[in-house]
Nucleic acid binder design. Structure first.
Lengths: 135, 135
DNA sequence: AAAGTGTACTATGTATCGTAGTACACCATA
DNA sequence: TATGGTGTACTACGATACATAGTACACTTT
């Protein structure tokens, strides 16, 4: 039986993102970087809720989204486990959502009047964390 | 007296962004790229609302935000005009908001399992529109 | 005087988010 | 068998954001 991983996660109500999205982002990142290995067990809904000091329903909502996106799988009565890697979205959907993300970032750069080249460099550094795993 | 510019803008309820933000983004972009020159006059609140088929209050909200950010200025009874370029945000605020934007983009790349190098290249192309004006 | 300008209100309806409580089927173990 | 832990599915409430609707006011130009 896989051992439950600790999941060093922290959430903040002051964050611009909803609590459930903060959890989804954090778990997805840990899976993508390999910190959470395929087949590993996630903390229980009630356990993580108590650890974070938030409502169990909020954790359940985050877990439901991770499940619908194919990142985790649930075994009845046992818990949630990291799913094996697979294609999770259609190519069209991927392109559409990346376009949205690019548009969002460009508009923010414009709003801040931030030097584009410098912004690009900052983003390049932030993306390096992923290159090892995705390459 | 400056002539009212036409402002080729279109909004869509299907867009993920609120209507008011769509307007703010579009106007900011046109100012940043030089399509709207400093001192140019913007369409009236009621005029743009009719053109876009939305409520005047929504346009007023967008204009209010553009005003508070320093992109436009209002002259009593005359209308809204593009303000001269200036420093609009503190360096700390700029860095904080860019960090947010970077985090958002990275998380989206992870969620899509999109090749980071490819995403960076796509963003580089999207940012080229700004380089001419900002450089 | 009339029309057009930005701005400031109140009000209504819709949607999202987080919290709270309850309930159910499933599994492992004492 | 009984108990406790698992994910999941509901309902309900309050807070917030968003768009719409309507009204009103001070200002400027014609």
């Amino acid at each position: 039986m896989p051992r439950t991983q600790v999941l060093a996660i922290q959430v903040a109500t002051g964050d611009s993102r909803p609590l459930s999205k903060q959890i989804v982002d954090a778990v997805r990142m840990k899976i993508a970087t390999g910190e959470l290995e395929s087949g590993g067990k996630l903390p229980s809904v009630r356990g993580l809720a108590q650890q974070l000091g938030i409502n169990p329903n909020t954790v359940a909502k985050a877990y439901a989204e991770l499940g619908s996106e194919g990142w985790v799988e649930s075994r009845q009565g046992l818990g949630l486990f990291v799913a094996p890697p697979r294609q999770r979205l259609s190519d069209d959907e991927r392109e559409r959502r990346l376009d949205d993300a690019i548009r969002h970032f460009v508009h923010e750069v414009v709003a801040l009047d931030y030097p584009p080249q410098q912004a690009l460099q900052r983003l390049d550094e932030a993306l390096r964390v992923l290159i090892r795993k995705t390459a």
